[in-house]
Nucleic acid binder design. Structure first.
Lengths: 202, 202
DNA sequence: GGGAAACTTGACGGCCCCGTCATCTTTGTC
DNA sequence: GACAAAGATGACGGGGCCGTCAAGTTTCCC
């Protein structure tokens, strides 16, 4: 036998099953929402038995956390990388929005899931909608203020405003066909560059 | 007998009971969230029997709709009035935000409820977070554009951005003690006036 | 004051989901 | 190839919530 990773059938199917469950969970949480969804709904989309689920996750909350963590971390790092490598304020804002909207378009199911489950996400993770992501933004903004790239304004308010715009603009961007990634990114960028300029002029 | 409104004991207690249920429902939905809440949770905060609930509302969804409608309509009208009576762009934006933040502070439970239940609200009412409220805003913006008070920009995007900022800034405003109504309103106003100015300069 | 109508009460049957566990199947090892 | 360990299976008991409804209570009206 010589498949790609012949690393023991035992481990192989274990990883497979875990992935299968996570994929089904993503779908179910996106379609039904966290509260309405049940472990059985997830298992049913699988050729596994209900008992098997509990070999991989303690309960519904555990699998939900896994689903969220999985992509949230990735997005968070992506955004952070874009922002810290930016060389101008226009890039700082614009590139991050473009990256964010690109993500929304590339993984619509995850977007659906986030929209539908802001309540549970808020309850299980931190307060802000994208939890740690907004904290990152606050930090990056404060660093930019220290360096003089951004006038001294309330970084927490600014981060909140940016996050709110990201979400709501995302909804409207995604519902256009084709998705208006560029238009939305430009809109958000103009909005915040103009706003920051005005605040700096105080 | 001569109480204030001696309008028949029958009708009197009927109104009383309805109000009692609505009040309890508000609390429960705010604390547990729509999905997690059950009719029994509502009834339990009441000295009524479970059967009585069903004399007033068909089910959980009906009482939830009643709770939301009740205050959403009021807020919607208040905001609309502020906006249409504004005589400058600065007022249009600033007064509306001030009115909004005032509402959040004056009825924190309702705010909690809205935050916790954006998902169900979206599912049961329209798409946008405050449903018809955002549509109002789109209309008012388009009217302002026609009159030349606002440069021609995408009214749907702008309304979405304003709504997103209203929500997320609201969260951060409310968590400061005392609530920073004025600071948040000024922040939002500067942001959008600056942003609109920049878009007009294109 | 008495009887009918309106309303309240809470126990009940039905339903669905949860997490477990005894049993069966597959994999790894010698 | 046979045995032990790891893992999969799905039936089961427990628990909770739902909406109903027969019986009891209050209000209305003559």
């Amino acid at each position: 036998m010589s498949t790609v990773a012949a690393a023991g059938k035992r481990e192989q199917t274990k990883a497979q099953n875990r992935a299968t469950i996570l994929e089904a969970a993503r779908e179910v949480f996106a379609e039904l929402g966290y509260d309405a969804a049940g472990v059985r709904d997830i298992v049913r989309r699988t050729d596994l038995a209900s008992g098997t689920f509990y070999n991989y996750f303690r309960d519904k909350e555990a699998v939900f956390r896994a689903v969220i963590d999985e992509t949230a971390q990735e997005v968070r790092l992506r955004l952070r990388a874009v922002r810290t490598s930016s060389r101008s304020l226009e890039q700082f804002v614009g590139d991050a929005y473009r990256a964010w909207f690109d993500f929304l378009v590339s993984d619509r199911m995850m977007f659906e899931l986030m929209q539908r489950n802001t309540g549970p996400i808020r309850a299980l993770f931190g307060d802000p909608i994208l939890g740690a992501g907004v904290d990152d933004l606050v930090q990056d903004l404060e660093a930019a203020i220290d360096q003089g790239a951004v006038p001294p304004l309330d970084a927490r308010y600014m981060a909140g405003a940016m996050a709110g715009v990201a979400l709501e603009l995302g909804v409207r961007m995604a519902e256009r066909t084709p998705p208006d990634v560029d238009g939305a990114a430009r809109f958000a960028t103009d909005l915040f560059l103009g706003g920051i300029a005005r605040m700096g002029a105080r």
